[in-house]
């Protein structure tokens, strides 16, 4: 059976990007229901092993809705999140997982539309790549 939508795990942040994802709902901006969100305090505290675990459990993609420059824990957040994504990409290559199945974008607390846009395009990509 062909999948209608890809399974995507989103890591959001409690203070910044999760409110944006909430607002997407509030504004009835639709995205696939196979997108699940786990909120953590800060995107720079996501462990690569959690992401790897998601792939093992059958998730097609992982999306990090990062704090960006709005992070309440300091300006280094962007850089640190970037670094953990890099590390994870290395791990993914090691296990022959397409690195493009991990995406990151800064989602500010009101960036609902941008979140939905990102997710839709990610979903498109994942559907295409799993088909081939």
């Amino acid at each position: 059976m062909e999948k209608k939508s890809a399974r995507i795990l989103v890591f959001s942040t409690e203070k910044i990007s999760d409110p944006a994802i909430d607002m997407a709902g509030l504004l009835k901006l639709h995205y696939p229901p196979t997108v699940y969100t786990i909120a953590v305090p800060c995107s720079s505290g996501i462990k690569p092993r959690w992401i790897m675990h998601a792939y093992e459990q059958g998730f097609d993609g992982v999306f990090i809705a990062a704090d960006g420059s709005d992070c309440t824990y300091g300006e280094s957040c962007t850089e640190k999140t970037g670094r953990l994504v890099e590390v994870t990409h290395q791990m993914m290559k090691g296990r022959n997982i397409d690195p493009a199945r991990l995406r990151m974008a800064a989602i500010c607390s009101v960036c609902s539309e941008s979140f939905v846009k990102q997710i839709k395009s990610f979903n498109q990509y994942l559907l295409q790549s799993t088909k081939s």
């Binding site: 795990l9 786990i38 953590v40 305090p41 800060c42 720079s44 505290g45 996501i46 462990k47 690569p48 092993r49 959690w50 675990h53 998601a54 459990q57 998730f59 824990y73 280094s76 957040c77 640190k80 670094r83 953990l84 590390v87």
Partner: peptide, 27 residues
């Protein structure tokens, strides 16, 4: 904030309420 979690080379740090066990079970 958990910024110390991903940098630990031996995975010796957890964030309370966001431990590996909890997150992985959620996944």
């Amino acid at each position: 904030c958990g910024m110390c979690l991903p940098v630990c080379p031996v995975n010796a740090i957890d964030l309370i309420a966001f431990s590996d066990n909890e997150i992985e079970n959620m996944i």
